[in-house]
């Protein structure tokens, strides 16, 4: 068994977070302060390839993107179950492997179902 990470191991991550945020905030604030500020009429409207922009982007979009997001949630949760199994599977041995076969079988059934339902086809 490997040793548990103590809270001290996570200290550098907090440092790194502070440094990364500091770097980003510093550069973005600096350029905000030293850059010029000019408001011309063309900059005040959204870019639409040079033609007059019509309306704004707060419009309905294809439901397919939402479907992909739902499928991602489903599959990612199922995939996450495999992570702890993968790291410990030597202890679980053959039984664990058979159980994982069954689990993936049910996963595969769902997968075949969404393919049959044409949820992954973009027409």
């Amino acid at each position: 068994m490997e040793a548990q990470s103590t809270s001290l191991n996570y200290l550098p991550i907090i440092f790194q977070l502070l440094v990364a945020l500091g770097f980003v905030v510093f550069t973005m604030t600096l350029t905000h302060l030293i850059g010029p500020k000019r408001k011309t009429a063309d900059k005040l409207v959204a870019f639409e390839s040079g033609i007059k922009s019509i309306g704004n982007a707060r419009q309905p979009f294809s439901i397919k993107y939402f479907l992909v997001a739902i499928l991602f949630v489903l599959f990612d949760v199922e995939v996450i179950f495999m992570y702890p199994w993968a790291v410990n599977f030597r202890e679980f041995g053959l039984n664990g492997l058979i159980e994982m076969f069954i689990f993936m079988g049910t996963l595969l059934l769902g997968f075949i179902y969404i393919i049959k339902k044409r949820a992954l086809d973009w027409d």
Binding site: T27, M28, L30, T31, H32, I34, G35, P36, K37, R38, K43, L44, V45, A46, N56
Partner: peptide
């Protein structure tokens, strides 16, 4: 050049 460019936030 990037540092001295305008930091533009569109009004929309």
């Amino acid at each position: 050049k990037l540092f001295f460019k305008e930091d533009w936030i569109p009004p929309f």
